[in-house]
């Protein structure tokens, strides 16, 4: 790998183009119907997922921001685990239709939690996410609801929805600099209006408002 010229490395598919929005519970079915109509070979009811995500942090003495890894596993298929790193979200300038961030996702075995703990990562929080996913070409659409787990490591009972609305995400993971992707996504987002307003949401503002 080291011997490869840099241009081959740059082509790795680690850039996620992202648009986000939300849909209220009572309008969810309308949105799902529309997505079934718009996306590639979808059936009714659409494909759904039910995942448990654990977010691991590692503190760093020099940088205030912790290093964050996310472990997600399906509660339907027990052997389906993945580890994900998400970079900082970049707004880009006005001409860029989407957010971009680094996204590295890899399948792992279920002892990844133990491994991360050994490395010095500590679990910051965990949650359960339920929802539906769609594909349209290389675009992926997820409609998901987040649940707080009132009892640690109990993914079945005592769940509490964080917010009655569903988060709608439209994303493509590909190589950096493929601006055509952004245009495609913008056009697709346009088709979901006025039901959902998929847009670039400044993550820095949200993180700051929270404090």
């Amino acid at each position: 790998m080291e011997s490869l010229p840099p241009m081959f490395k740059a082509a790795s598919l680690t850039t996620e183009y992202l648009l986000q929005g939300s849909i209220m519970e009572q309008s969810r079915d309308v949105l799902l119907q529309r997505l079934i109509g718009l996306c590639d070979d979808t059936k009714s009811p659409p494909d759904n997922f039910h995942d448990h995500e654990m977010v691991f942090h590692m503190k760093n003495t020099t940088i205030q921001q912790p290093l964050v890894y996310r472990v997600r596993h399906s509660l339907v298929q027990s052997d389906c685990w993945s580890l994900r790193y998400l970079g900082n979200t970049e707004m880009g300038d006005k001409n860029k239709p989407t957010l971009t961030r680094t996204s590295i996702d890899c399948p792992v075995s279920e002892n990844v939690v133990q491994y991360l703990n050994e490395l010095g990562f500590r679990m910051d929080h965990e949650f359960v996410v339920k929802g539906y996913y769609f594909h349209k070409g290389r675009m992926k659409v997820t409609v998901s609801k987040f649940f707080k787990m009132n009892q640690p490591s109990n993914v079945a009972d005592n769940l509490e929805a964080v917010c009655p609305s569903f988060l709608v995400e439209l994303s493509v993971v590909t190589a950096l600099g493929q601006e055509g992707v952004g245009e495609d996504m913008k056009n697709f987002a346009e088709q979901l209006k006025p039901l959902v307003q998929l847009e670039k949401t400044d993550h820095r503002k949200i993180t700051m408002n929270q404090t």
């Binding site: 939300s22 964080v162 917010c163 609305s165 988060l167 307003q197």
Partner: peptide, 9 residues
């Protein structure tokens, strides 16, 4: 709600 959900994730 969008902001809340994004903040949560």
């Amino acid at each position: 709600d969008t902001s809340n959900l994004i903040a949560a994730t």
